[in-house]
Amino acid sequence: MRTLDYGTLAFWAFAATAVVPAFLVLVTRDVVRMAFWLLFSFAGFAGLYFLLGADFLALTQVMVYIGGILILILFGVMLTRRRDGGDSGIARDGAPRGSGLVVQGVTAAGLLGLLAAAVHTRTPWAVREAGEPAYTAAGLGDLLLTDFILPFEVASVVLLVALVGAAYIVRREPEEGE
């Protein structure tokens, strides 16, 4: 057991901030509450990134996820109306119900626990000594425009598809008379 220094302490604090609210997101039923728990979870991850010396990633996490996506979720909740559901006629083969749900849940949790334990204790991680924290933005920029230029460009195509699709799906045309 290593001695508990401030870095380790900060790690556990941020890790708890990331994981506990994430679990609460799962068990909460109200969307607005979920969004607020998500905020804490995102903030915890941002802290972890800071701790790992990934300053750019951490700031992006704060700006994009907390500042952008979360606000969008809240706006989405506010601006959408609730409509009555109905059955689409698609059959649901083998959807778990009742005791089946419990059995499957316990099995999944058990397998996940085993997996996490195995991964945590046995992985031969490729570790590197931590150096002085440095600004990472310049290096990231270089990498994105050299070694990773193709995925970087494809990301823009992914966004294009998402935008076109979203615009199509939400657009209301008068003759359809929704």
């Binding site: 494809v154 195509v157 992914v158 598809v161 998402a162 076109v164 699709g165 199509y168 799906i169």
Partner: peptide, 8 residues
């Protein structure tokens, strides 16, 4: 990319 396009 394939997944998002497929959802749409």
């Amino acid at each position: 990319l394939v997944s998002i396009a497929s959802f749409v």
